[in-house]
Structures are given as structure tokens and as C-alpha cells.
């Protein structure tokens, strides 16, 4: 079994975690003080974090050809990298917004998840390895989409609350418009449905095309069950949105993404605590 040790690399997780944490502190500081250099420092900290993060993932790829989705840890780190990239783009597009207060904790949360996650080589299924990779990529992108939708939904609910209660002005907390948040929210939900669906389908396919044993789908496995539940919720939410116009609007979409996030947290918790599907048995059986 291949056990990867990222701490041995020149750039370690602390480098980019610290950079993102500094960016988060700067975002918080801007709620109280008008700092002239804040935006520049914030962009510099996030960019530095992204460079270190990219370097770290690049080292992982150099170390093992299956990276950056070779381990649960990689999977979390890649999701965090993508979210950090989205944050940087959002910061450039909306320089004055306080989106970092929402996106950066999620980035740091994913990195914390990476610390807690297994660093053991994930088993690719016995079928063609492509299915396993596509499966991992779909689910990683689906996770980012759900997270993004959840954060946009959260911001929507806060912004809507502030507007309803006449508290939208006079504070340093600047959020994008409801229209923008609703659009991001809605698109993230649609993308999450497709990506999680794609991840589920490719997972099933990779099981079915296994060559050296009887095709078998472990429907009762906790990981499969929780992912199925999440997918069912996403599909139902999408169908609901298609047939019921108010569900396409504002708060209802926000609530849908909050619920999708709850499912996601559940799936990730199951994977962290009880993933028998991707690790032990598969590794012994599959590694070439």
C-alpha cells in the first residue's frame, strides 16, 4: 500500500493554510477598519496561498501519477484549491464584497477535512481506471458546486434578512445583490445535480465493468446510501424547480442548497468515518 507523506514535500499544507487564514483575517478586519492596503494584501495573501497550493498539488502529481485524486486527502485539497480559485476570481470581480467571509472558511474547512482524511492510496476499481478517475472528478466538482450553492444561498438569506429588516446599509458587510446570488445559487444547484449524478453513474459503471469478479453494486454500503440520498434530493429539488415557479426564486432556492449542503456534510462524514468502499478491500484487490 502506498502511503503518501505530503509533509515531506518542500511546500507543506501550513504554507497555503496560513496564507488563506491571513486573507480571512484581513476580510474580518475590513469590517471594522478602513485599511488602504487591505485589498492589495488580501489579493497577495490569496494568490500566495494559491501558488503554494498549486505547487503542493503539483508535487503530489509528480510523486504519484494517480494524484491529485489518489487519496481522500488529495480529493479535499483539490476541492479547496478550486474554491480558493473561485474566491480569487470573485474578489477581482467584486473587489468590495465581503464574500471572503463565507468562501475562505469553506476553503479552510476543506483543508481541515484533508488533515483529518485518510492519506492512503484510494483504490481504483478493477475495471478500467478511467471510470474511477472520472467518478472522483465528478464528485469533487459536485462537492464544490454544492458548497458554492450553499454559500451563495447563505449570503442570499443574510442579504434578504438585512433588506427586510432595513439593515442593509450602514455596515461594512457588503454582499452581492440578491439577483446575482440567486443566479449563482440556482446554477450551482443545477450543476451539482448533474455532477453528483455523473459521479454516481460513473461509480456504478466502474463497478459493473470490473473484469475479475462478478459485477456487484453494494447498495447497502453507507457511502452509496448517503450519496444516493443526496442525489435523490438534488433531482427532486430540480424537478420541483421545473414544475413550481416560486421554487426557482430567492429564498426557496437558498433553502434547497442549504439542504443539499446538509446531505453533503453527511456524505463526507460517512466517507471520513466509514469508507469501506474505496479503501481496504479495493486496495488489496486492485493495485497493479
Amino acid at each position: 500500500m502506498e502511503n503518501l507523506k505530503p509533509m515531506d514535500l518542500g511546500v507543506n499544507m501550513l504554507c497555503f493554510t496560513a496564507s488563506y487564514a491571513i486573507a480571512l483575517v484581513l476580510e474580518f478586519l475590513s469590517l471594522w477598519a478602513h485599511l488602504r492596503w487591505r485589498r492589495l494584501a488580501l489579493l497577495a495573501a490569496t494568490s500566495a496561498g494559491l501558488v503554494a497550493h498549486t505547487w503542493f498539488l503539483g508535487q503530489r502529481v509528480a510523486l504519484t501519477p494517480r494524484a491529485p485524486l489518489a487519496t481522500h486527502q488529495d480529493w479535499y485539497l483539490l476541492a479547496a484549491w478550486l474554491l480558493a480559485l473561485i474566491y480569487l476570481a470573485a474578489k477581482l470581480y467584486y473587489p468590495k464584497s465581503s464574500m471572503g467571509l463565507f468562501l475562505l472558511p469553506a476553503v479552510l474547512g476543506l483543508i481541515a477535512g484533508a488533515q483529518a482524511a485518510s492519506n492512503t492510496q484510494l483504490a481504483t476499481f478493477q475495471g478500467p481506471r478511467l471510470w474511477g478517475r472520472v467518478h472522483g472528478m465528478f464528485l469533487m466538482l459536485g462537492t464544490v458546486a454544492v458548497l458554492l450553492g450553499f454559500l451563495a444561498g447563505l449570503m442570499y438569506l443574510i442579504q434578504s434578512y438585512r433588506l427586510k429588516h432595513k439593515r442593509a446599509t450602514g455596515t461594512a458587510l457588503r454582499l452581492p445583490s440578491l439577483e446575482w446570488l440567486e443566479r449563482v445559487n440556482s446554477r450551482a444547484l443545477a450543476a451539482a445535480t448533474l455532477l453528483v449524478g455523473g459521479g454516481f453513474f460513473t461509480g456504478v459503471m466502474s463497478r459493473l465493468v470490473q473484469s475479475n469478479q462478478e459485477p456487484f453494486i453494494p447498495w447497502t454500503d453507507p457511502v452509496v446510501m448517503s450519496l444516493s440520498a443526496m442525489l435523490i434530493w438534488l433531482v427532486v429539488a430540480e424537478v420541483f424547480r421545473l414544475i413550481y415557479p416560486p421554487a426557482r426564486r430567492g429564498r426557496k432556492v437558498a433553502y434547497q442548497t442549504v439542504a443539499a449542503f446538509a446531505f453533503l456534510v453527511f456524505v463526507l462524514a460517512v466517507i471520513l468515518l466509514q469508507d469501506s468502499l474505496h479503501l481496504t478491500r479495493a486496495v488489496t484487490e486492485i493495485m497493479p
Binding site: 442579504q159 433588506l163 442593509a168 452581492p176 445583490s177 440578491l178 439577483e179 446575482w180 443566479r183
Partner: peptide
């Protein structure tokens, strides 16, 4: 200006 640039802009992107 407060009504349009501060408040309505919190609702509408454009």
C-alpha cells in the same frame, strides 16, 4: 441616491 445606489442595488445586479 441612497434608495437607488445603496438599497435597490442590493436587490438588483443591473
Amino acid at each position: 441616491s441612497v434608495a437607488i445606489a445603496d438599497l435597490a442595488a442590493c436587490v438588483f445586479e443591473t
